[in-house]
Amino acid sequence: MFQNVKSTLSGYAKYRGEGHIAFVLHRIAGLATVIFLGLHIIITSLVFFAPSWYDKAIQIFRNPLVMIAEIIMAFFVVYHGVNGLRIAYLDLFRPDLWTTAPTRKATRGVFAVAILLWLPALIIMGHSLLVHGLGLLGGE
């Protein structure tokens, strides 16, 4: 197990290229999302199992650090979605395009689209962080 982790990590560090960065980012984003989702399911299910705990539990999401993590999570969800769309489309419909040059172009395009789609979330959630998280701009 340890040897596998070691060789994978050194492989991540040594091998460069857009396709590989996309692969690593897709996995990190997916991992973060499934951890968030697990917590989200447990916390939300409190509304049935322990309703008086629910409003206390979601106070966590008013913590400024957690709010910053949520803004990063938003990027992960958007990136994982756009990149996943690329992977699913190529695998299911155009496997002939799985070659170096088109993959390089597509991964850059995916990154640009993900940043663009994330910007509104960054602005809205960033504003909420300033107002509700940090008590700035007349918030409390």
């Binding site: 509304v47 629910y54 999401f61 979330a121 959630m125």
Partner: peptide, 16 residues
Amino acid sequence: QALIVGGHNLSLDYVA
């Protein structure tokens, strides 16, 4: 939930 309603507006009442 995150952008239109906003995380700070979530509550038991909202879920209900």
